[in-house]
Design a protein around this nucleic acid. Structure first.
Length: 954
RNA sequence: GGGCGCGUAGCUCAGCGGGAGAGCACCUCGUUGACAUCGAGGGGGUCACAGGUUCGAUCCCUGUCGCGCCCA
């Protein structure tokens, strides 16, 4: 029995349990051992995360694909899991510590990690449960975490292998340093933010001249946005072609306040159009200056510490070669925070007349995407991946089509980035993450190995050989970690979280320990993600997958757009416009949310979501619910031997025809990743075809006398309903599974039911195809069956029911226009009807009368006088409404119709009159135009007759 | 500065070479045998603008304007 009201919350809870208990989403089900696998790896959400609309969209689309392919008979593996999210998670736990007046450095690394794991155990399951509420059909028994033992082993193996091949190396260069989080971050984690600041024009005195602010020949003016870094300047650069400064190149300036003598160099980086045309060069604190420094062999003087404070005292690089008097400056500015230092240094410079002017200036300032702090280019030792080398196969794979982006234009973005890729900084000065498998000896020599034993063994062997230690000392240290603690130290840093995510498509499958699943499920079929992580994740999975598996990790990358609020603004906590998917699910159900997202998932637009939109889709679910109730109340059930293709009743053949069409549309749209088209096709079919017409037209039969027509119609109502449930299941899994269960006794779950139903026995050709298809071929029986159904068509049924629909629509339309109250039953006269029309009218008498609010239907040679005359499929349907209707209004209506017909004729004539059109256009187009003209002319003639009769009536 | 995308009904968007579409909103009518979370009907658009290609352009090309995003 179907409940009276649709209650999503109740249904969704029960269906989740049903799927769980049945193990419906398990990959490798025994009965599908011979089926072709279909694999998707989930973009692992952060363990710290909770479900937001982006997740909801991303996972809805993946689920549609997985459920679709599962129904098509594939052995689906949707691999779930979560990401340890180094920085984000560490921040969460640190915040908790702060609340308790603690700090990670106080409690130490081991204790801190214990706390993080504890936190993960308590809260890490939140997002997984939220994904389940959305209906995600992942194989939850295979859930993975990027810091699982197996995944960690994969990571170490990868690191060691890449290091051995020289693709991972340590380097001292400028990194993006986050002074708040105290770690390096990669280029991608830096956001450029336009900031209103200033451009300071500073006078740098020329060596050998007495500085005089009034005399421009005694100094050179440099423009800078960061005056505080001037303490670390080691040159001034001008453009080689800049004539203003040509004479000064090779000369020196005396750095104000500091007193250091630094050269003026010619470098093309300086832009003569910008600022003064001369720039100060601070190789240790600016990426461009670093490059200038390299080109001119300049010293690198770092004047900041990790926290972004000036570090001058004891700074050998800084102090080297400075005059006596500079000690005072050290005292004044040492340990001053960078932005305070900026103000104070500018003030000092002004005291001495070194500041020429200050201009307002808007420029891009790098910020950390996690901390929001202004990023400091900072000179440190870090680990890097040689991304340029790894990128080459990843570029080729997309060029060759082995991996394709959908929509295709994202490939351009991918190429742009991959072809200009920079070394990837992978070390992070954090505690939460995979600690780098590198150990250092006392002289800083690095030993990289998969295990500590191996690394220590190598190191001790090396130092013994170098006679740094004796063989005996080596043996002791090898046996006792305490004894070697001061001699060999492990690298404290951890790896970028994205380094482990890059391995996700194969590390989750058991690589390197067990390759059974790798063989079966790798490479995966589709990756579904947002464009914002193409670089972070997709590109890196491509690199790692190709390098280690020798095959691209997926053949399709489907890129979807963002979910925005109803006004198109990005959802953000600070704006307060965040729509919480769980709240929406509570209010309208997961199915409604999923359907709203799927219907909006067009290729080239972000999705604008409002709760009203979700409500609309909940209403659709209710509509379906009630349609199924109607079927039930009318005893609609499908006998097992029922074959829709053998139906006798025209109406039933018509709905079989329409169902086939819908099946084809939905299938093709999903195959093309046009989720919105697929969802809209099924929406329209359910509401505007099945409910609005089929069930309405079937009512008289269902409520009439028992007999063959009624029996067949009951079966067909049930058959089409089942087809709908199947077509809709990938989009609205909960309600369809529930309705599937309560509408009939079923062999199994809808989630595992075949995608379509066999309409006809397979043809010999199809049977032959099946026999020769390899077990791994995508075209397994369910797909062939779907093609069968999709191919069912019946143009005779279409013509007949189409006529009924047109007639009813035309009558309704004119009644509304003429303000005829529904209670008024008007007679209908079919004028000059063909034998076929007469038969149809008799067959559909009840239905037409009910739906069009008619009295009786009769036939006549011509329309009665003063009747409203409608043209339906070339024949006149008349409503004798003399006295009821306004004759002049009716004349106006017909005049309008004539005008329309005339316009059509004129347009077609213009075309057909054009010799070039007739000569150049394809034959069928010309033929079509001729038919259109004939139709319009015929229409016009009929309306003219109608007008004539109207005149007679007047 | 380089790149990508988008300007179609009041709103959100489909369509992307041969007669302008959907959903929502709006207006009118409706206690008609599943559904008022509903039904029926209706109005509303020089498809941003200007050139070009074509027998034919909302659709392809070029340019302009406007909006958004990415990279530097």
């Amino acid at each position: 029995m179907i409940e009276k009201n649709y209650q999503p919350a109740d249904i969704e809870t029960r269906m989740s349990r049903l799927w769980e208990d049945a193990g419906a989403f398990r990959a490798g089900r025994p009965e599908r051992r011979d089926a072709k696998p279909f694999t998707i790896v989930i973009p692992p959400p952060n363990v710290t995360g909770s479900l937001h609309m982006g997740h909801a969209l991303n996972n809805t689309l993946q689920d549609i694909l997985c459920r679709f392919e599962r129904m098509r008979g594939r052995d689906v593996l949707w691999q779930p899991g979560t990401d340890h999210a180094g920085i984000a998670t560490q921040m969460v736990v640190e915040r908790q510590l702060t609340e308790r007046q603690e700090h990670r450095r106080q409690i130490g690394r081991a204790k801190f990690l214990e706390r993080v794991w504890q936190w993960k155990a308590e809260s890490g399951g939140v997002i997984v449960n939220q994904l389940k509420r959305l209906g995600a059909s992942c194989d939850w028994s295979r859930e993975r975490f990027t810091m699982d033992e197996g995944l960690s082993r994969a990571l170490i193996k990868v690191f060691v292998a890449l290091h051995r091949d020289g693709l991972i190396y340590k380097d001292k260069r400028l990194v993006n340093w986050d002074p708040k989080l105290l770690t390096a971050i990669s280029d991608l984690e830096v956001q450029q933010v336009e900031v209103k600041g200033s451009l300071w024009y500073l006078r740098y005195p020329l060596e050998g001249k007495t500085f005089n602010p009034e005399d421009s020949s005694t100094f050179i003016v440099v423009a800078t946005t960061r005056p505080e870094t001037m303490l670390g300047d080691t040159a001034v650069a001008v453009h080689p072609d800049d004539e203003r400064y040509a004479a000064l190149v090779g000369k020196h300036v005396i750095l104000p306040l500091v007193g250091r003598k630094i050269p003026i160099v010619a470098d093309e980086y300086s832009d003569p159009e910008k600022g003064s045309g001369a720039v100060k060069v601070t190789p240790a604190h600016d990426f461009n200056d670093f490059e200038i420094g390299r080109r001119h062999n300049l010293p690198q003087i770092s004047v900041l510490d990790q926290e972004g404070c000036l570090a001058l005292a004891g700074n050998e690089d800084y102090l080297r070669g400075l005059p006596e008097g500079s000690a005072q400056l050290v005292e004044e500015f040492d340990r001053v925070e960078r932005f305070a230092a900026r103000k104070r240094i500018v003030a000092r410079l002004e005291d001495f007349g070194f500041v020429e002017r200050i201009e307002p200036n808007t420029h891009a300032v790098p910020h950390g995407d996690r901390s929001g702090a202004v990023i400091e280019p900072y000179l440190t030792d870090q680990w890097y991946v040689d991304a340029k080398t790894l990128a080459q196969p990843a570029i080729s794979a997309v060029r060759s089509g082995a991996t394709a982006f959908v929509p295709k234009n994202w490939e351009k973005t991918y190429f742009e980035w991959m072809e200009n890729i920079q070394p990837w900084c992978i070390s992070r000065q954090l505690w939460w993450g995979h600690q780098i498998p590198a150990w250092y000896g006392p002289d800083g020599k690095v030993f990289v190995a998969e295990t500590e034993e191996e690394a220590v063994g190598n190191a001790l062997g090396y130092y013994a050989e170098q006679e740094v230690i004796t063989q005996e000392q080596g043996r002791e240290m090898a046996l006792d970690p305490a004894k070697r603690a001061d001699f060999i130290k492990r690298d404290e840093d951890v790896l970028d979280t994205w380094f482990s995510s890059a391995l996700w498509p194969f590390s989750t499958l058991g690589w390197p320990d067990d390759d059974t699943d790798v063989k079966r499920y790798y490479p995966t079929d589709v990756l579904v993600t947002g464009w914002d992580i193409i670089f972070f994740w997709v590109a890196r999975m491509m690199m790692m997958g190709l390098h280690f598996m020798k095959e691209a990790p997926f053949s399709i990358v489907y890129i979807h757009r963002l979910v925005r609020d109803e006004k198109g603004a990005k959802m953000s906590k600070s704006k307060g416009n965040v729509i919480d998917p769980l709240g929406v699910i509570d209010d309208y159900g997961a199915d409604a949310l999923r359907f709203a997202l799927a219907r909006g998932a067009a290729h080239s637009h972000d999705i604008k979501l409002s709760s009203q939109l979700v409500e609309t889709n909940r209403n659709f679910a209710t509509k379906l619910w009630n349609a199924c109730r109607f079927a039930e109340m009318n005893g609609c059930a499908m006998p097992p031997e029922f074959d829709p293709a053998r139906a006798k009743e025209t109406l039933n053949r018509w709905i079989a025809h329409e169902t086939s069409r819908a099946t084809r549309e939905v299938t093709e749209a999903i195959e093309a990743y046009r989720f919105n088209d697929a969802a809209n096709a099924i929406y329209r079919f359910v509401w505007n075809v099945y409910c609005d017409w089929y069930l309405e037209l079937a009512k008289p039969v269902l409520m009439g006398e028992d007999g063959a027509p009624k029996t067949e119609t009951r079966a067909m109502v049930a058959w089409a309903r089942d087809e709908i449930l199947k077509l809709l299941h990938p989009f609205m899994p909960f309600i369809t599974e529930e309705l599937w269960a309560v509408t009939s006794k079923r062999d199994g779950l809808l989630a595992l039911a075949p995608w379509s139903r066999k309409a006809d026995p397979l043809t010999p050709e199809q049977l032959a195809l099946m026999a020769t298809a390899s077990p791994n071929d995508a075209l397994l029986p369910p797909v062939l069956s779907a093609l069968d159904t999709a191919d069912f068509s019946d143009s005779a049924a279409e013509a007949e029911i189409g006529w009924v629909v047109d007639l009813v629509t035309a009558i309704r339309s004119v009644r509304a226009e003429m303000n005829i109250p529904p209670a008024t039953l008007t007679p209908l006269v079919l004028a000059g009807a063909s034998a076929e029309t007469r038969e149809r009218a008799q067959r559909w008498n009840d239905v037409i009368r009910r739906m069009a609010r008619l009295g009786d239907i009769s036939f006549a040679a011509s329309a009665p006088e003063g009747a409203v005359q409608l043209l339906v499929r070339g024949e006149v349907a008349a409503l004798p409404l003399k006295g009821v209707i306004d004759l002049s209004a009716e004349k106006a209506r017909l005049d309008k119709e004539i005008a329309k017909a005339d316009a059509d004729i004129k347009r077609v004539d213009a075309k057909l009159g054009n010799e070039k059109f007739v000569a150049n256009a394809p034959e069928e187009i010309v033929e079509e135009e001729k038919e259109k003209r004939e139709a319009a002319v015929a229409r016009k003639a009929k309306i003219l007759e109608a007008l004539e009769r109207l005149k007679n009536a007047a």
